[in-house]
Amino acid sequence: MRTKLLYQEDSYIREFEATVLEVNGNEVILDRTAFHDGTGGVQADSGYIIFGNERYFAAASHKGGEVVHVLDRAPVFKPGDVVRGELDWEKRYKKMRLHTAAHILSAVLYDKYNALITGGEITHEYARDDFNIEGDMATVRKAFEEAVAVVNEIAQRGIEIKVYWLPREEALKIPGVVKLAERMPPDIPRLRIVEIPGVDVQADGGPHVKNTREIGVVKIIKVENRGKGKKRLYYTVE
C-alpha cells in the first residue's frame, strides 16, 4: 500500500493535507489519508477532498490493496497536486466509540463463554456482532444482557487505551489477541495492537477512542438467532 494511514497513529485527525498519487476517473489515491477504508468490519469513512475552490464529496474504499477515495465527480487536480481532506467527524467518532465498545464486548464474552466473533459490522448508527455462543435464545439473550452490563461498567472506569506495534510473531503469542473465529490478521511483519489495560488486547488496524469513558452507554437493539454458532447482537451507544 502506498498510502500512509494517519488514523493508525492518531484516530482524532479530522483534516489533513496530502499529495495526489493517482487519479483514475473519479477515483483518487493519496500519499496519506485519515479516511478509514472499510476493512476489518468498520464502515468506510466519508467526507470531502478539497482543491482550491473545488470541494468533492468523497467515500473511501479498499481496492487492489490500496485506499481509494471515490469522489462525486472527476476532479480537476492531477498527480502531484496537494489537496486537503476533511472527515465527516460525527459519523467517524460514533464508529470509534462503537469499535472500542465492540472490543470490550468481545473480551467479556470470550472470557466468560470462550465465545469468538464469527462476523460483524460497525456503522455510524449501530454495530452488530455474531458470536459462536450456544444455547436457547432466552439463555443467549441473558448472556448478552449481562455482558453489556459489564461493558458499561468497564467503560465508566475511564481506562486509557494504548495503541502500539509488535512483531507479528511476538504479537500472536498474546492469549486472546485474535478473537475472530475464521480470520487471522494480515500476513505482515508488524501488527498494530489495541490494548485496553486489564480488559483486552487485540490485533486491530482501525480507529478507536482514547478513553473508555468516551464510549458512553451501550444499549442493546435486538438479538437474533442466525443459526448454529451464530447468535447476533445489534447494539448502539448513547
Rank of each mutant, 00 (worst) to 15 (best):
M1Q: 08
R2W: 01
L5V: 02
L6N: 02
Y12G: 05
E17C: 02
E17D: 09
G25R: 14
N26R: 12
L30W: 04
L30R: 04
D31H: 05
D37W: 07
G41W: 07
V42P: 00
S46F: 11
R55A: 02
S61Q: 12
G65F: 03
E66H: 14
V67I: 15
L71F: 02
P75S: 05
G80V: 12
G85K: 07
K91T: 05
R92N: 06
R92H: 08
H99N: 05
A101Y: 04
I104N: 00
S106M: 12
S106C: 11
Y110I: 01
I117P: 03
G119Y: 12
Y126H: 15
D129M: 14
I133V: 15
E134G: 05
E134K: 05
G135C: 09
A143K: 13
A149Q: 09
V151C: 13
G158F: 01
V177Y: 01
V177N: 01
V178N: 15
D187K: 09
P189W: 07
I193M: 13
V194C: 04
E195K: 15
G198K: 08
D200N: 15
Q202V: 11
P207T: 08
N225V: 07
R226K: 15
G229P: 11
K230Q: 11
K230I: 05
K231Q: 11
Y235T: 04
